[in-house]
Design a binder for these strands. Structure first.
Lengths: 208, 208
DNA sequence: GGCGGATTCTATAACTCTATAGAATTGTGG
DNA sequence: CCACAATTCTATAGAGTTATAGAATCCGCC
């Protein structure tokens, strides 16, 4: 019965190439700035041929965004569940957040910039995932404060937003900053978040 | 000779309203996602009437972006030239960077997201301004390190990028985070950057 | 070698968007 | 109240975009 000419793995690989091209084009020009013609050009096929692989441009964005988020929540949840001290967890969270920017930069970039353009249903779905992710990180910080492993007067909400903003920005310049590997960035960012840029002894907190 | 019917101030005010509308629409939907029709709808006028105020949609983006950057370099240069200690300068830089997000959020938002869509010449101009801004901040950090006011082993380049990323992200959620005024955000972010989130004594640097 | 599904192509409908041309309207200073 | 510049309008050209229909081609397998 199954008379498949091209093998299923072959077909899946081709489908992945199509989405790769879409991700690359969306990442470079933005969803609205990119045309399906641009995607076809990258692949060397005709614009209409794309519609064999996805039913609409929006559906392509959805696939790209889905690959852009995948793994974040799981990785963070695993880190949060570990029994390392909070500072070490923060280190792991930073690295876990930055690593996908090396491994699937275009996908993450599109997700971060254009997820709000998704159709209602999937937008709400990724919205929920994002909020869950934020809450995991914030939870790690709050637990750290309770355990006395992090500063007692920390505003965990703002610290979470700061951490995410700092890391997310990397997607815009990673690859253009010479010498900045993901590991180096992660280490430096973690150190910065944990200890700050002021020297060890000097704490100019309660006004000198 | 000058027979102006509507006074010049009146005309300038109207022109500002037009650009305000463009900024609001670009900020909400992105440059490519927004149509000139959308801008006209906000103003309650016809799409073609906009072209009395700007010669092209691109020119409107240019005006919005220009107002989005204006002041950043000047403010940072003034802070850098002051004689406060480096940590205090960092505090001022953070506040100076965040304040425009309260006072002209749509403009800053459009600038941050869509400046790379500008036509070549103006893109290069704002590119130069951005680089100058980054260099001022990085210069403050480097001077602080040399003066012993900041940690000696700091990577000033990455710290600069971290600081900017952290602050820039605020434009996406400021106004949606209840209770987060610009002053509170600035204070918290400055504290975070300077001292980190780890408690005062605990420095887990040279592995516990 | 040729069958049949998988893949790509041609052609085009239907729509949206920017921008221009020129007419109509508005409102103020003389 | 009128002349005239400033402002807005109607109408539309022209280019580009998404998506569909159906034909053509490809290719592993019998």
């Amino acid at each position: 019965m199954p008379v498949a000419t091209r093998s299923a793995p072959q077909a899946r690989r081709r489908a992945a190439e199509i989405i790769d091209a879409a991700a690359a084009v969306f990442a470079e020009r933005g969803y609205h700035g990119a045309s399906t013609q641009d995607i076809a050009d990258v692949l060397g096929i005709r614009q209409a041929s794309l519609y064999y692989y996805f039913p609409s441009k929006e559906a392509a964005l959805e696939q790209v965004c889905m690959r852009g988020v995948e793994g974040f929540v799981e990785q963070a949840a695993a880190t949060a569940a570990g029994d390392e001290p909070a500072p070490e967890k923060v280190r792991l969270l930073v690295l876990g957040h930055l690593a996908p920017m090396r491994d699937r930069q275009p996908y993450v970039r599109v997700f971060l910039r254009d997820r709000h353009l998704l159709p209602d249903e999937s937008r709400r779905r990724v919205g929920r995932a994002s909020r869950r992710y934020e809450r995991i990180i914030q939870g790690v910080l709050e637990a750290g404060v309770r355990a006395g492993e992090l500063r007692a007067d920390l505003d965990c909400r703002l610290a979470t937003l700061a951490l995410l903003g700092m890391c997310n920005a990397a997607v815009t310049w990673y690859g253009a900053e010479p010498g900045a590997t993901i590991e180096r960035i992660a280490e430096e960012f973690a150190m910065l978040v944990l200890d700050g840029i002021a020297p060890r002894g000097a704490r100019r907190r309660g006004r000198s």
